[in-house]
Amino acid sequence: MSRGRSHTGGASHATRIAPRLSTERDLYRKKDSVTAHPAVQRAIDAANSGDTEGFLGSFTDEGAVDDWGREFRGREAIRSWSDEEFIGVDVSLAVTAVRQTGATVTVSADVGGRGFNGPSDFTFTVSGDRVSLMRITG
């Protein structure tokens, strides 16, 4: 998650995302929880708990991360990216909103940790019970 912003420490804050399936565009804002597809919940929960294996397991075999146009496809590429820029720098994602349209789920979050800090959007493409793509944008 390199975006040229200040790298200041942030407190780890995990927000629980409860499962919810929807085919309509939804926007949910709640004080302590935000609802999303179970595959997205697993990925966010794993990131917030520092669980690299759980994070990788939330992706399909050919899953990918697109971090501002830089694509990391497959388990080992995602692991390498995460070790350097995500879980490896103690990322925390305080989810503020979720929007879902069919198999596309966009999670807005305040990002903390020893890497990028600040608001960001994570757009997940879900395939079955796993994530096939996690695209990070602002």
Rank of each mutant, 00 (worst) to 15 (best):
L21S: 07
S22H: 02
S22C: 12
R25Q: 13
D26P: 00
L27R: 04
L27A: 09
L27Q: 02
L27H: 04
R29V: 15
R29W: 12
K30R: 12
K30L: 03
K31V: 15
D32A: 13
D32P: 00
D32L: 14
D32G: 09
S33F: 15
S33I: 14
T35D: 14
A36T: 03
H37G: 04
P38K: 01
P38F: 05
V40Q: 07
Q41N: 08
A43H: 04
A43K: 10
A43P: 07
A46Q: 06
A46L: 13
A47E: 09
A47V: 07
N48P: 12
G50K: 05
D51F: 10
E53F: 12
E53Q: 15
F55H: 10
F59G: 02
E62W: 04
G63K: 04
A64W: 06
A64F: 08
A64G: 02
V65N: 05
D66F: 09
D67S: 14
W68Y: 14
W68G: 13
W68R: 15
W68F: 13
G69I: 04
G69H: 04
E71G: 05
F72Q: 01
F72P: 14
R73Y: 01
R73K: 13
G74W: 03
E76A: 06
E76I: 02
E76Q: 11
A77N: 08
A77Y: 01
A77E: 01
A77L: 11
I78K: 10
S80K: 07
S80W: 00
S80G: 08
W81M: 01
S82L: 03
S82N: 00
D83P: 01
E84L: 07
E84C: 06
E85N: 15
E85R: 14
F86Q: 00
G88P: 00
D90E: 11
S92N: 13
V95Y: 08
A97I: 08
V98Q: 12
V98P: 01
R99M: 15
R99W: 10
G102K: 15
G102D: 11
A103W: 06
T104D: 05
T104G: 02
V105Q: 09
V105F: 02
T106E: 14
V107L: 09
A109G: 06
D110R: 10
V111G: 02
G112P: 06
G112Y: 01
G112N: 07
G113N: 08
R114G: 09
R114N: 11
F116A: 04
F116D: 08
N117A: 13
P119R: 15
S120K: 10
S120T: 10
D121E: 06
F122K: 05
F122E: 00
F122Q: 00
T123L: 04
F124E: 02
T125V: 04
G128K: 04
G128H: 04
G128T: 05
D129V: 00
D129G: 04
D129N: 12
D129M: 02
D129P: 06
V131D: 05
V131F: 01
V131H: 00
V131Q: 09
L133A: 08
